[in-house]
Amino acid sequence: MSLARFEYHTEFYPLTYRVQERGWLMFKHEQQTGTPDVAAFLADPERQARLQALGANGWELVSVQPVLEGRAQIGQQTAQGNQGWGVGYAVATGFLMFFKRLIAPTQSQ
């Protein structure tokens, strides 16, 4: 009976968010929205080339895990300032991709 042996590899791929312009004339500024730019993520030629190279070298994608960052907003609800509020939420910053590749079967006795 032969046992399969594997080696493992992990890579991180960042996720960008859409940017929206706010303001007018000299008061214009860019503000990051809460909407991920999925089209840019999927169309990235460097990431596509890297995934193709990994596949050509025998690496199999086993799992994908989002990497989350905690965000918080705290503010005052009324003009008198006697009521506060707070919100906490998680935002995906990217993905960890886990790969495995068969090394070579070993002979067991």
Rank of each mutant, 00 (worst) to 15 (best):
M1S: 14
S2R: 11
S2I: 05
L3K: 09
L3Q: 13
R5S: 05
F6Y: 04
Y8P: 03
Y8L: 05
F12S: 01
P14H: 07
P14I: 06
P14M: 01
P14K: 03
L15K: 01
L15M: 10
T16N: 10
T16K: 10
Y17N: 04
R18C: 05
V19S: 06
E21D: 03
R22H: 02
G23T: 01
G23E: 02
W24Q: 09
W24V: 00
M26W: 07
F27T: 09
K28H: 02
H29W: 05
H29G: 02
E30Y: 04
E30L: 02
E30F: 01
Q31C: 06
Q31A: 10
Q31H: 07
Q32M: 11
T33I: 01
G34C: 09
P36N: 08
A40P: 02
F41V: 02
L42Q: 15
L42S: 15
L42T: 15
A43C: 12
D44C: 10
P45C: 03
E46T: 11
R47N: 09
A49Y: 06
R50L: 07
R50F: 07
Q52F: 01
A53I: 01
L54F: 10
G55E: 07
A56S: 11
N57G: 10
N57A: 12
N57M: 09
N57V: 00
W59R: 02
W59T: 01
W59K: 02
E60G: 03
E60A: 12
E60L: 04
L61G: 08
L61D: 13
L61H: 04
V62E: 14
S63E: 13
V64H: 13
V64L: 08
V64D: 14
Q65A: 13
Q65W: 10
Q65R: 12
V67W: 09
V67S: 15
L68K: 07
E69F: 08
E69A: 11
G70M: 06
R71C: 09
R71N: 12
R71G: 06
A72C: 05
Q73C: 10
Q73K: 14
Q73N: 15
I74C: 09
Q76Y: 14
Q77F: 08
T78H: 15
G81F: 05
N82Y: 09
N82F: 03
G84N: 06
G84R: 12
W85K: 03
G86M: 07
G88S: 12
Y89C: 05
A90E: 14
A90H: 09
V91S: 07
A92N: 14
T93N: 05
T93K: 05
L96C: 05
M97N: 12
F98N: 15
F98G: 07
F99Y: 15
K100W: 05
R101K: 10
L102H: 06
I103C: 00
A104F: 04
A104D: 12
P105N: 14
T106E: 14
T106D: 14
Q107D: 11
S108G: 11
S108W: 07
Q109I: 06
